[in-house]
């Protein structure tokens, strides 16, 4: 499994008249088998860091590597291909596409560049659904599922392509406490048992016990980096 490494990664935003630095040079190594929680107040830069790590934003400076592969200067199409192959995303809202069935939403992560999902992919999608407690929901429309179920579908969508890195943006904030705990247990298992890099952005304290590593970010800078296992 791969290691994600950022080296003095920074990002500026322009409001049209002046530049504002929202993330100061940040050096991090994120290891497989580890669930990293990135917390901090609103506007502290945690989502910006997550976007940079997931190749959806280009850094103003610094470098990003996945193992030995430098991902910093990829053009838009190549960055999209790397995202499709190596990164899984779980968003604050499940963001499933209405009109596509649950199964099609999951397989979209495989086929978005035109590939026809193989029988093995389809079997894997069904297996993931069963694994996440959603057996039999494949043909259903997302609107028929509860919020917690949708979020688990979005986790299945992120995992169906066996990503080396799973990036989650506030995955529990739209869920009730019980569903949130269920989602975190799944993410924890994905990190530990499947040896993936898992990064969870959250300011929900109920998430922290699941972290192998807790990063705190304020004003665009990491101010604390604690490695502590809260749960066995």
């Amino acid at each position: 499994m791969a290691t994600l490494h950022s080296e003095r990664l920074a990002r500026d935003f322009s409001d049209g008249t002046s530049l504002r630095r929202v993330l100061f040079p940040t050096t991090l190594t994120l290891h497989p088998g580890e669930l990293t929680v990135l917390s901090g107040p609103s506007g502290s830069g945690k989502t910006t860091l997550l976007s940079l790590l997931g190749l959806v934003l280009q850094p103003t400076e610094g470098r990003l590597r996945l193992d030995d592969r430098d991902l910093t200067d990829l053009d838009e199409a190549d960055a999209a291909t790397v995202r499709r192959q190596a990164f899984g995303f779980v968003f604050q809202q499940p963001m499933l596409i209405e009109g596509l069935s649950v199964r099609e939403n999951i397989l979209l992560a495989i086929g978005i560049q035109g590939e026809r999902p193989s029988a093995a992919h389809q079997a894997k999608a069904e297996a993931l659904l069963a694994d996440l407690g959603l057996a039999g929901t494949g043909p259903l429309q997302p609107r028929l599922l509860s919020g917690g179920m949708k979020q688990r579908v979005s986790i299945a969508r992120a995992l169906v392509k066996d990503p080396a890195v799973l990036l989650c943006d506030e995955p529990t904030s739209a869920l009730d406490a019980e569903s949130g705990q269920a989602v975190m247990r799944i993410l924890k298992r994905v990190a530990l048992e499947e040896r993936r890099v898992v990064v969870v952005v959250s300011h929900d304290a109920r998430v922290f016990p699941y972290a192998d590593r807790l990063l705190k970010i304020e004003n665009g800078q990491i101010v604390a980096d604690a490695r502590e296992r809260y749960l066995p």
Binding site: A77, T81, R83, I97, L108, R157
Partner: peptide
């Protein structure tokens, strides 16, 4: 619009959206 952004995040290129 949000769905197209999701497709892009999942690895869709602009030409995939155009398709």
């Amino acid at each position: 619009n949000r769905d197209f952004a999701v497709m892009r995040a999942l690895g869709g290129r602009r030409r995939d959206i155009a398709f």
